[in-house]
């Protein structure tokens, strides 16, 4: 895709006049500023004291306005270490299940012909069109019956169910393009169907798995609805819910509010810096196929 883009790039570049170029950059740069200015503003001001936040909101934190008091409040008052641990446990476990079960199901759908194949395929991707939240009333009842309210397991199970349709869809599409020969060779060598999946197929689909992982991660990490409804206890709060409730309590303490927002933003930005290529490749390839 990069190659196609860059040949187009070269041609388009030559054909266009300077003024067009300037206009293109003005619009893109303008919108980029609109997109990131609010985020930068919050992070900058989280490093200021109260006076600095209000007297000079647009300035950089300097000697007399620099302060970490907001972070100090957040770290002593809110139990953010627990919230982070919860978010990580929930996100990583759900991702693991989505990828493992999703890849297994996709493999079955792409590799074998059996009755119900098409039907099961359609059934599994129905969830893309129907948001799982609409079943919240019954999900809560179910969790009460299973004694899972206020446990991280409840969130993990729901997010797995939520993430499976997209994962199965993308992985099935991709697995249909895999070469048969390599799997048939393995069969001739006497590998069982399970070993073929884990030792032949999984290594081949690793890049797509990474894409699906980054892709499924964002809605899980950022969700407010299910933590609020299924696991709002102190021990099971996720970062998103923790920040939401912390800010509700500390509305007057601006440095604490800004610091807690920054604490929620910075890890996401860090991960994005690491995985943005993968994420963007995933969205664009999904779109081309979808």
């Amino acid at each position: 895709m990069t190659n196609i883009a860059s040949t187009g790039r070269a041609r388009a570049g030559r054909a266009r006049g300077l003024s067009t170029k300037a206009a293109v950059h003005t619009v893109l740069l303008g919108y980029t500023i609109i997109a990131i200015f609010p985020v930068i503003l919050v992070i900058l001001n989280s490093f200021k004291n109260r006076r600095g936040i209000f007297s000079d909101p647009l300035g950089l934190p300097r000697g007399e306005t620099f302060s970490m008091e907001g972070y100090a409040t957040v770290l002593t008052q809110g139990d953010f270490a627990t919230y982070f641990a919860n978010s990580i446990i929930v996100t990583v476990s759900a991702l693991f299940l989505i990828l493992l079960l999703g890849a297994m199901a996709a493999h079955a759908l792409a590799e074998y012909r059996f009755r119900l194949n098409t039907l099961l395929g359609i059934y599994l991707i129905l969830g893309i069109m129907v948001p799982i939240r609409l079943g919240t009333v019954a999900i809560l009842e179910l969790m009460v019956d299973l004694n899972l309210v206020n446990t991280l397991l409840a969130l993990i199970l729901v997010y797995t169910a939520q993430g499976l349709p997209v994962a199965v869809f993308i992985l099935t599409e991709f697995m249909r393009t895999l070469s048969r020969d390599i799997k048939d060779c393995a069969r001739v060598d006497g590998l069982s169907e399970y070993r073929i999946f884990f030792e032949v197929v999984v290594p081949l689909i690793r890049p797509v798995l990474a894409t699906v992982a980054v892709f499924s991660m964002i809605p899980i990490w950022n969700d407010l609805w299910f933590p609020l409804i299924l696991a709002s206890g102190d021990a099971t709060k996720t970062v998103t819910l923790g920040v939401q409730q912390f800010i509700g309590q500390y509305t007057v303490n601006w440095s604490a509010v800004l610091a807690s927002l920054s604490i929620a933003i910075l890890p996401v930005l860090g991960l994005y810096a690491l995985f943005s290529r993968q994420l963007i490749a995933g969205i664009t390839s999904g779109a081309v196929k979808g």
Binding site: G135, I139, L142, T160, A161
Partner: peptide
């Protein structure tokens, strides 16, 4: 998992 936690609740 999908049936129990997504389709059944719906």
């Amino acid at each position: 998992i999908y049936t129990i936690f997504s389709i059944y609740p719906l």
